[in-house]
Design a protein around this nucleic acid. Structure first.
Lengths: 201, 201
DNA sequence: TCGCAGATTGACTGATCAGTCAATCTATCC
DNA sequence: GGATAGATTGACTGATCAGTCAATCTGCGA
């Protein structure tokens, strides 16, 4: 099969998705043309429509691919018998490392989907909500164990936690905060420190 | 002069701005047509271009009007000789009360400008940054007074604080969080409580 | 070698919409 | 009551671009 061959058939679908990440990150979803994506991928205009029914569906695919990995990761972390701080720390680490590994993709997901609740966020509200719900569950358990204050609403705490991380990523994306390797590492600690500090009894 | 007359000349410019808030909130800036705004304002299409050079400039005007008030409010609060918690509490209250008073306007500002850093956020990055800077200053002072931990970067703390508030507003805007009067009041306390709790020594 | 299916091409179409502009209206002042 | 300036109108234009489609290419099995 092709996946075992050294010189496999070029995967145009993947090339289109990767090109789209770069183009969306550079120009934004609405500002770019489908031809920009095709050009960036080194592929004819019409081929995009061979693999995807629309420009929108390209963005949807990018988002769902990545968001699914994150949700799965949160579920997995939650299953482990470790303290809250460690769970939240793992989530913060995962998101921040995702940014380190592929800043363009995270920029697209945050700017065009997660923070664009009017357009694509609307479509994916369910997925986004699920992330809040999972984080909220972690908070609830910590409250039941008497580690977190019971009087703060868990969903609310989850939004605060995720909101803080996303805001920091946004700061990096738009050059409002320094983003050396040490900065990313410190950010992980600081987010968890700040939020847990405020929530613990 | 007209402002003293009971039946003053109708202020079409204002009518257009108010209509734009409703239309942008309902359909989003990119998805709506200029004719939608004109219709909503009960005014001819061309009149919008008599008062504004472009559709964009209508949104810019709405944003700058409101953001300017907020920046001035933060500066004023900072001048008062009150504890940090009270300062941050006043900021949270102002933003949340702004939402209570005119949810459509806040939705537009957050969804189309503040969180749309790719399009309009870019244009207004300076204004947005200024808010972070002012909040960061408040945090810095608290650190100098020994009330807040010195090891957390002030700009970072400012983003966490503002990010948490904005995320909660976003939750209300898109129906992810309950938004009764009590919820709004509790949110003010919870945001300040959580962030200060995490930052205090 | 032939024929087929799927991959690939890019010119073209149809719809959309921001912005223009010449015409008309209205208020005000002399 | 006439003249002027600014307000108001809405039909029209020009550009843009997502999506279509018929034509061509390529790899592979018979």
């Amino acid at each position: 099969m092709s996946s075992t061959r050294a010189k496999a058939v070029p995967d145009r679908r993947r090339a289109i998705l990767d090109a789209a990440v770069r183009v969306f990150a550079r120009q934004g979803f609405h500002a770019c043309r489908v031809s920009d994506i095709a050009d960036e991928a080194g592929v004819a205009y019409g081929l995009l429509y061979h693999y995807f029914p629309s420009k929108e569906e390209v963005l949807n695919t990018l988002f769902l691919e990545r968001w699914g990995v994150m949700l799965e990761m949160i579920r997995e972390v939650d299953r482990k018998p470790v303290p809250v701080r460690e769970k939240l720390g793992a989530i913060a680490s995962f998101i921040i490392d995702s940014y380190r590994h592929d800043p363009d993709l995270m920029k697209v997901i945050i700017v065009e989907v997660t923070r664009a609740a009017n357009s694509f966020g609307q479509t994916h509200l369910g997925q986004i909500r699920e992330a809040y719900r999972l984080i909220g569950e972690i908070v609830t358990k910590a409250q039941q164990e008497g580690i977190f204050k019971a009087e703060i609403d868990a969903e609310f705490a989850a939004m605060t936690f995720y909101g803080a991380i996303e805001q920091v990523l946004t700061g990096w994306i738009f050059g409002l905060l320094p983003q050396g390797d040490e900065d990313l590492e410190r950010a992980k600690q600081m987010v968890v420190e700040t939020v847990c500090g405020g929530l613990e009894c």
